[in-house]
Design a protein around this nucleic acid. Structure first.
Lengths: 264, 264
DNA sequence: TTCATTGTTTGATGTACATCAAAGAGCTTG
DNA sequence: CAAGCTCTTTGATGTACATCAAACAATGAA
């Protein structure tokens, strides 16, 4: 049954198409490198722009870039010059401790912006690695700042994106500092499915693009514990798992694990 | 011996004065509300500004505000309108889970900017609570954005501050996800002392402004574990602890705990 | 096809830290 | 100065998760 899950089953929401997800890597020459006719613009770009403004904003993006699965978009220590908007594919960002322990700091998908860790010291602090073949829009930070000065709405948008990242990380700190393994995984799955849904995919079925170990690193637990927790949810009939295919059978139960009701 | 620690022992570095730390709350009317003659400006404001530019930037700050120990500068859900630069005093920021667990997300001191969590959704996501009587500069975000459009150097500065926060939180994720209790506390103490040193205080002695419980919340451990770990460091001669007074006797040992050398 | 590799699952055992509990230290208040 | 806070320390015990280990599944190369 879960074998039947395919990305093409995802349905569309608003004007976002799932094209970007199911089509093979496109030849960038075939498509105008422009935000104004990008089907992800509602995720990357401020909303409510006039067409004319949008066209002016096209110049934030200089080029596109392909990244093969497993390779780095940027690495710790690389000079920072640009932000990236993910067009297709999936990334993880991570930091390494001195003695080589990896902490995954996030998983990013289409429409999300990465690279902001590099601004503070003009070099990247994280590694960004493609979890599948990916394509990103290169947005030189100079361009972003220049256009931000011209368009208050873009300026605010940039601030919001950075603030969102700060708030997201606050949430991860809560997970890591206060939650138990089951709560962490439940929160993770709910977050993932919610973001996928916003991109036009199913609310219930999806394919994990990361290993148990990467999930574990993100959630501060070992891969065995991730696996066991998946199995537990599965035994309880909350989810159906087959390798990386996940189907959420009882979202309310998941939410209940994540936010246990005080029984008062 | 540790009884002798007083803030007046702190020595000065560069042009930063410790005045702000030791003087009783000042009457705001006595001092011009201006960044251009603030002794913390090197922490809050971009460096390398001309005097004339600096004077123009004075208008980011609208007023100052006093916050009594234990009270909120802002709370989760409050409408966001302004950032705050801490002039004197100490804050903690925290988030609460649905069932009331607190996660301290940071401790902030003079010269640091707080409130950026509110930008993304126009309302605050954290609570900011004064750990001692404090004074902040109120910087309406409208002003910040307006002047940012005018001064690229301020614009870049704002971006750097937000990026720094993102990177800091990455580090906390590493602590929470991968480090053991001793490593966490060692990292915490080293970070604290480094920031205090940048403000003109001793590299070795300081007074904790937060409880064991708050430290524990930040570091994802229970107050008893914090206490035990302090005791352990103390027994090993690495630090001297008497209540909230801490003296670092062997900083290298602390660093070694934090970043264990691979014995290859 | 077989073999190797990589990722996943599951079981047995160990441990770092949490929890429970109680005493002590430093304050504030009357 | 005693009474009553809050915060801290320390000990005894419990447990959630890590670690170690081995089998299994999926994928891709030879």
């Amino acid at each position: 049954m879960l074998d039947a899950i395919t990305l093409t089953e995802a349905y569309n929401v608003s004007s976002l198409s799932d094209q970007a997800w199911i089509s093979p890597p496109m030849n960038p020459e075939l498509f105008k490198v422009a935000c104004s006719n990008c089907n992800l613009r509602e995720l990357c770009m401020p909303v409510g722009l006039q067409q004319a403004e949008m066209v002016k904003l096209d110049s934030v993006v200089s080029t596109r870039k392909r990244i093969k699965e497993g390779s780095h978009l940027f690495s710790h220590g690389d000079p920072f010059t640009t932000l990236y908007a993910i067009r297709t594919g999936y990334f993880k960002t991570s930091v390494l401790s001195e003695d080589g322990r990896e902490q995954v700091t996030g998983f990013q998908m289409a429409g999300e912006i990465i690279g902001m860790d590099g601004i503070v010291s003009d070099q990247h602090h994280c590694n960004a690695i493609a979890l599948e073949d990916a394509e990103v829009c290169v947005m030189p930070f100079e361009n972003v700042e220049e256009l931000s000065r011209e368009f208050p709405v873009l300026q605010r948008h940039v601030h919001k994106i950075m603030s969102r990242e700060i708030v997201r990380e606050n949430g991860v700190m809560m997970l890591l500092g206060n939650m138990r393994a089951e709560e962490r995984l439940a929160a993770f799955l709910l977050n993932l499915v919610q973001r996928l849904h916003a991109r036009g995919f199913s609310q219930t079925e999806f394919v994990l693009r990361m290993t148990r170990e990467e999930i574990g690193s993100y959630l501060g637990m070992k891969l065995e514990t991730v696996s066991r927790t998946f199995s537990k949810f599965s035994e309880e009939g909350i989810i159906e798992v087959k390798q990386r295919n996940v189907k959420i059978l009882n979202p309310d139960a998941l939410k209940n694990i994540f936010t246990p009701q005080s029984c008062g």
